[in-house]
Design a protein around this nucleic acid. Structure first.
Lengths: 216, 216
DNA sequence: GTAATGTTTTACCAACCGGTCAAATTATCG
DNA sequence: CGATAATTTGACCGGTTGGTAAAACATTAC
C-alpha cells in the first residue's frame, strides 16, 4: 500500500532526504525571485527536476515548502547578530558584524531576497517570529550597544536605528542587486563592489560612532 | 457604437479621469503589497469598486496599469536626488536629502514598496530606466559629491556607495515596515520612529562624512 | 523470490486567471 | 426630445493553478 506521505514513517529514507533537499533548493530559487504568491508549484517542480505530483508527495502544500524554507533561513540569517559579543571590543564587534552581514549578502543573496520578499509583502507567514525571537534578540543586543555608549566607548545613539541601518545597508547589495548593477555599470563586474562597500560602510559607521575627540 | 477604448478619443472625459485615478490608486495598494505576479486584476477591480471588465475598459491589460504606475512613481521618486544642488553647502544638501527621503518613506510607503517589489523581483519592467535615466542622474550627482571631497569639504568616500546607503537606510522604514514595527514594539507607535530615525541618520552621516579635525 | 513498503507517473478536477464580446445602460449634445 | 457616443454589465473562453486519486513502478526486508 502506498499510503504514507513521507510523514507517517518515522525514519526518513535516503531518497527522501535527497529529494527534499533538492526541492528546497529549487524553491529558494523560485520563491526568492517571485515571492510566495507569484511562484507556482510547477516552477519549483521543474527547477527541482521532478513532476508536480511527485513534489507534492514530499511536501503536501506550497505553504509547507515555504514555511520550512523560511524557518531554515531565518535561523542562519540571525547568526551574525547572535555572535555579537558584549564583552568584546565595540569597534571590532561592530566592524565584524558589518563585514559578516556583507558577506552573507554576497554569498546568500537568494536567502536575503526570500526574506525581503516576505517582509515586503507584510510578513504574513512569520509575524510571530518577528515579534518573538527576533525582537528578543534585538532588544538584548540593543542593550549591549547602549551600555557601550554609557561607558563612553562609542557615541551615544539609538541602538535600534543603528541595527536597522546596518541591516539595510548591507542587505541592499543582495535585495537591490539589479539596481546596484544598473547604477555601477562596468564597475559592478566581479565582486569588487563588495570590497568597496565594505570599505565605505566600515568608514561610515566607525567615524559616525566615534566619540568625538577620543578613540572608540 | 461603443468601440473607443478611452484611447481613440483625444479628449479625456471627467469620468475617465476619475476612474483611471481610482484604478491607479487601487492598483498601488495591490501591487505594492503583492508584487506584479502576485496581484490579480480582480483584486484591483474590487479595491477600485468596479467590475473587472469595467476596469479593463480603462486599461487594456494588467501590464498597462503597472507600467503607468511605475512610470509615475519613478519620476517623483527621484525628485529629491534631482534637487541635490552642486552649488549648495554639502552638509545641508546631504542632510536635507536624507530628510526628504525619510519623509517620502513616511508619506508614500506604498510607492516605495511598489518600487522595491519591482527591483527585488529582477526589475523585469524597468531595467531600461535603471540603466538609462537613473544611472545618468546618479553618475551626475556622484561627480558632485566627489568634487566636494576633492575640495576637502567632506571626507573622501565612494559617492556611489554613499548614495546606496542613504537610499537603503531611508527606504528601509517603508519597505521593511512590518519588521520595524515588530522590533520597536510599543516604541513604534505614532510617527516618532521617523524623528528618531532622522536624528540617528543625520548624526551618522554627518559625523561619518566630517573631515577629521575640520568642519564640514 | 515475494511481499510489503516507498516512489513516480498519468489522468484528472474545481477554482482562478487574464482577457473578450455583445448587449444593456447611462451620459452628452444639439 | 432624440441621436450619438461613453460606460457598465454578465456571460463566457482558453489556459493556468493548487491539489487529488489510483495505478504503475521501484526498492527494501525477509
Amino acid at each position: 500500500m502506498a499510503i504514507p506521505r513521507a510523514a507517517k514513517t518515522q525514519r526518513r529514507t535516503r531518497i527522501q532526504e535527497e529529494k527534499e533537499e533538492r526541492i528546497l533548493e529549487a524553491a529558494l530559487d523560485v520563491f526568492s525571485s517571485s515571492g510566495f504568491r507569484g511562484s507556482t508549484i510547477d516552477q519549483i517542480a521543474e527547477a527541482a527536476g521532478m513532476s508536480k505530483p511527485n513534489l507534492l508527495y514530499y511536501f503536501r502544500t506550497k505553504e509547507a515548502i515555504h514555511r520550512q524554507l523560511i524557518d531554515r533561513v531565518l535561523f542562519t540569517w540571525l547568526e551574525p547578530l547572535r555572535a555579537f559579543d558584549p564583552d568584546g571590543n565595540p569597534e571590532s564587534e561592530i566592524r565584524s558584524y558589518i563585514r559578516r552581514k556583507l558577506e552573507m549578502a554576497r554569498d546568500f543573496p537568494r536567502e536575503s531576497r526570500l526574506f525581503a520578499n516576505e517582509i515586503l509583502q507584510g510578513a504574513p507567514h512569520i509575524e510571530d517570529e518577528l515579534k518573538g525571537p527576533l525582537k528578543q534578540l534585538v532588544d538584548e543586543k540593543a542593550e549591549v550597544i547602549r551600555a557601550w555608549a554609557r561607558m563612553g566607548k562609542i557615541a551615544k545613539c539609538d541602538p535600534y536605528h543603528l541595527i536597522f541601518s546596518i541591516w539595510s545597508t548591507t542587505q541592499h547589495y543582495a535585495d537591490f542587486d539589479v539596481q546596484v548593477r544598473a547604477v555601477l555599470g562596468q564597475h559592478y563586474a566581479g565582486e569588487g563592489r563588495f570590497e568597496d562597500a565594505a570599505r565605505f560602510l566600515e568608514g561610515l559607521f566607525m567615524e559616525g560612532l566615534r566619540v568625538r575627540g577620543g578613540v572608540m
